[in-house]
Write a protein that binds this DNA or RNA. Structure first.
Lengths: 208, 208
DNA sequence: ATAGTCGAGTGGTCTGACCACCATATCTAA
DNA sequence: TTAGATATGGTGGTCAGACCACTCGACTAT
């Protein structure tokens, strides 16, 4: 391998730097195509597997996008994947689990408030349909109910983080509110009573 | 390869999930040793190169630490490397900024409220010290200020997620509130005025 | 012209081979 | 007996080469 190596740098880290340099030199922009793996391998005098290790890491960081049979492309940086991956590992840590439920509830409350201005009669009916559908257990109703609300927040990051927590909380317990909570919330939407949302969540808070 | 593959998931992504599961099942903690690459390869029925792609990506994210000749170890998540790598690559894309900032602000607001009941005079003075310390720029003050508040929430998960976003938002801009915001918040703590916290954040909201 | 085929290029994956490094067990010499 | 040298096995680091699956465009037969 010939990639710059000052102390004991691993090849894939050197490749990473070289790619960065390459992007800079060629002034590549979002959407542009990077050289193929084989080409990079040859140009940098590194094994293809090492090149791939660098590319895979970049991919996980959301820096590049890979299209099978086509090539590797620079992508607009989106923090989502990264945050998602990291969050999934953070959640794994037992010491952080205690706060899971209360954090999840915070997100649910804020989502309910964010969605407030974007919810109309039709949406409310949709929500009511969910909580009236007795073919599902309440756990699933909870999930659908809030999925719908989060969708209305139009904040993808917020939604993804909530979804992760929802997933993990299922390995625990108490993953929903009392039955009438949901009805109360839709009532507030109906009455356009923004203020009371905060109070509703406080009343039904599940402590941990 | 046998790692769970629903749609068209790449092997290394499946390996990533499996490793996460493994950490969970065995309740591995920071500093614990992961199975060797060869062992993982065999257990997950994936090539060693695929396993390595997953591990290298995790390494770049700072989730694991690799010691030549010894093995792979779970590491406390340290954002440094991640941020460093990203910073050297980031093409600032305004369109992705929105979700991150608003979500971060939600967490800050809720933390401020959660900490409310656990903040005493001494803590307030500590906060004031931070915002009066002009040897730091306001960005750093913001960081310390809220670090302190999040600590008081005693919710590790919430804190970690916020920290994550804080790190990422630094690759962008606008990572703090107007100067007097912080003073106002400590005043509310002083006056034991819980209600106004919500309003304060609303007034100082950084739109996106 | 159009539809179908084929091949070159690309990423995706696996295997097997070495090397470098580390810890530990083992042997050797004092 | 014991301190130091050495052998060994396990681990990560890296490479080369082989296939496979997919995409796209050029070529061909209709």
């Amino acid at each position: 391998m010939a990639v710059s190596m000052s102390p004991k740098q691993k090849v894939y880290q050197g490749v990473l730097q070289e790619i960065r340099k390459l992007i800079d030199d060629h002034k590549l922009k979002t959407g542009d195509k990077l050289p193929s793996e084989r080409e990079l391998s040859e140009k940098l005098k590194a094994g293809r597997s090492s090149v791939r290790e660098a590319l895979r890491a970049m991919e996980l960081l959301g820096l590049i996008e890979t299209r099978h049979g086509e090539g590797t492309f620079l992508s607009a940086y989106k923090p989502f994947q990264t945050v998602e991956v990291l969050a999934s590992f953070i959640l794994q840590d037992n010491s952080t689990r205690s706060g899971l439920l209360s954090t999840k509830q915070i997100l649910e409350k804020e989502a309910a408030k964010l969605a407030f201005g974007r919810i109309n009669k039709d949406h409310i009916n949709e929500l009511i349909n969910i909580i009236d559908d007795n073919s599902m257990d309440i756990t699933k109703q909870h999930r659908l109910f809030f999925s719908y609300i989060f969708e209305k927040t139009e904040n993808l990051l917020l939604s993804k983080i909530w979804w992760l927590m929802e997933e993990y909380s299922h390995t625990m317990n108490k993953v929903h509110y009392p039955k009438n909570f949901y009805r109360n919330l839709t009532d507030l939407y109906n009455k356009k009573d923004y203020q009371s949302i905060e109070l509703l969540f406080k009343d039904f808070a599940i402590l941990n």
